[in-house]
């Protein structure tokens, strides 16, 4: 039996062997580890795993920005349990209130903890299409996450998006002497991607518009994503926090590996279509995924998405 003194970090680093049954429900976790990538900007690095009770949905990067009067979080974690640990970690760094929870898109590893932030009075920000996307999928996501995470998902609820950002109209969030610039994007990784620029430190929090190490996943549009990356590259930032990958990376150089993957994928799929190769033939002999992590499921899924998009060109 694992006692209540269990070290949460050991769990986060480690693994699917833990099941909901072996985790006492009353476990008080240690706060999430945070890395300060720029002054007052902290990142929790998600693990490169599939969802499991052991990681409690904590597979995406989460950010915390501390301003003069208030703080904002970017993404809320993969479960209420993880979000509560995030809150503890925030309390250990600052006594300023969490006034803003900014969601980069609708995927469960980024939003399932959102109700925890809403409960403490944070305003929820997102892409103009986020609320519809969340409502559309919440029941499905929650059911899946209950199965995959067990008790950690208890208390997950869809949240209203109180402050929405339209594609052509960036919005600003003032944390007290520190301004965040929020931009919504046309369909790319998903149809509701949003980025946050911390103007004080020149750090772009890219959400899943940027994957490093872990294979990018196309749930929107391959060509749209490539176009959005051209635009993104013009953002005058110094550093980027990817949705998955290390806490930070140099900008815009960090775009290169994802661009190469998506361009190679588009080229390989276009070639197959031009030669009359069917989707199943292509999946049977797929183009190489490179050295991306967790590619065994997501690479074939990306090929399928790309094929479906490109066959109508």
């Amino acid at each position: 039996m694992i006692g209540p003194a269990i070290d949460r970090r050991a769990l986060l680093g480690g693994f699917a062997g833990f099941t909901a049954a072996t985790l006492p429900r009353t476990t008080r976790a240690a706060p999430l580890p945070l890395v300060e990538v720029a002054p007052g900007l902290f990142v929790h690095v998600g693990v490169h795993q599939d969802f499991s009770p052991g990681n409690r949905g904590g597979i995406a990067n989460l950010a915390l920005i501390v301003g003069g009067e208030a703080v904002a979080v970017v993404d809320a974690g993969g479960s209420p349990a993880q979000a509560r640990d995030f809150l503890e970690a925030i309390a250990a760094r600052t006594d300023r209130p969490v006034r803003h929870a900014i969601l980069t898109h609708h995927h469960p590893d980024h939003v399932m903890g959102a109700a925890v932030f809403r409960a403490i009075g944070a305003r929820i920000w997102g892409h103009a299409r986020l609320e519809a996307a969340l409502l559309d999928r919440f029941t499905t996501y929650r059911a899946a996450m209950e199965r995959l995470l067990g008790a950690a998902i208890a208390g997950a609820e869809p949240v209203p998006v109180e402050e929405s950002v339209a594609v052509e109209t960036p919005r600003r969030v003032d944390l007290g002497g520190r301004v965040l610039e929020l931009r919504a994007w046309p369909t790319a990784h998903t149809d509701c991607d949003l980025t946050v620029l911390d103007t004080a430190t020149g750090t772009l929090i890219a959400g899943d518009l940027l994957f490093l190490e872990r294979i990018p996943v196309i749930d929107g549009s391959l060509l749209g994503w490539l176009r959005v990356m051209d635009e993104l590259a013009r953002i005058p930032a110094r550093l980027v926090v990817p949705g998955h990958g290390p806490a930070s990376a140099p900008w815009p150089e960090a775009l290169a590996s994802q661009r190469r993957y998506l361009e190679d994928l588009a080229a390989a799929v276009r070639r197959a279509i031009a030669r009359g190769r069917s989707l199943s033939t292509l999946l049977a002999e797929p183009p190489p995924a490179g050295d991306w992590l967790l590619s065994s499921d997501d690479h074939p899924r990306n090929i399928t998405a790309a094929y479906k998009e490109l066959e109508w060109e």
């Binding site: 995406a60 995927h107 499905t140 899946a144 998955h244 997501d298």
Partner: peptide
């Protein structure tokens, strides 16, 4: 990360 291809079995 990924869209989750999970069923709404009970419903369907």
């Amino acid at each position: 990360m990924s869209p989750l291809p999970f069923a709404r079995r009970r419903l369907l």
